[in-house]
Design a protein around this nucleic acid. Structure first.
Length: 150
DNA sequence: GCCAACGTTGGC
DNA sequence: GCCAACGTTGGC
């Protein structure tokens, strides 16, 4: 089993939204590296840190689980969607997604600022300078360590 | 709202 | 294939 971190802007879709809906199709990813992780490496049952980005308190807000194999993101074909991609063909979809299932909300958000303060997490992809990936792997040791911070 | 960092696009 | 221009992400 692998571990991941997926970012979402809470004003758009928060951990509370996922809790209410139980499962959500993770649409709108339009970055090849992030897509490749979903398409090539994720498996149902993998665990996910649900990260709140671009907000007052950026950080890990909850835990989710991958709930499907990758499949084409329907929003790429929807002309009314802001994720519409007119260059993607149905016979050859460019963008993939996975379903994500709610597991739990953390008692408190483990903030980005706090994560930066732990030397053992220095190598974390999330904390690397300039990294803007919205979907990224988390090392098993990092996962276990972060869970102890809750 | 600002801006650094990065990805993508397209002219050449 | 280079690279300038542009768009996006996301912390602050």
């Amino acid at each position: 089993m692998k571990y991941w971190l997926m970012k979402s802007e809470p004003e758009t879709f928060s951990i509370d939204d996922l809790k209410r809906k139980r499962t959500e199709a993770w649409d709108g990813v339009r970055n090849y590296q992030a897509r490749n992780f979903m398409r090539d490496s994720m498996q149902p049952g993998d665990k996910v840190f649900f990260y709140h980005s671009n907000c007052a308190e950026p950080g890990i807000a909850g835990i989710a689980e991958i709930a499907s194999d990758a499949y084409p993101d329907p929003s790429q074909f929807d002309a009314k969607s802001k994720y519409f991609d007119p260059t993607s063909k149905r016979e050859e979809p460019r963008w993939m997604l996975v379903d994500v299932k709610f597991v739990k909300k953390l008692k408190r958000t483990i903030t980005l600022d706090e994560l930066k303060g732990h030397d053992v997490l220095d190598e974390m992809l999330l904390l690397r300078k300039g990294n803007r990936l919205s979907v990224m792997p988390v090392a098993a040791a990092e996962w276990r360590y972060i869970l102890t911070l809750e």
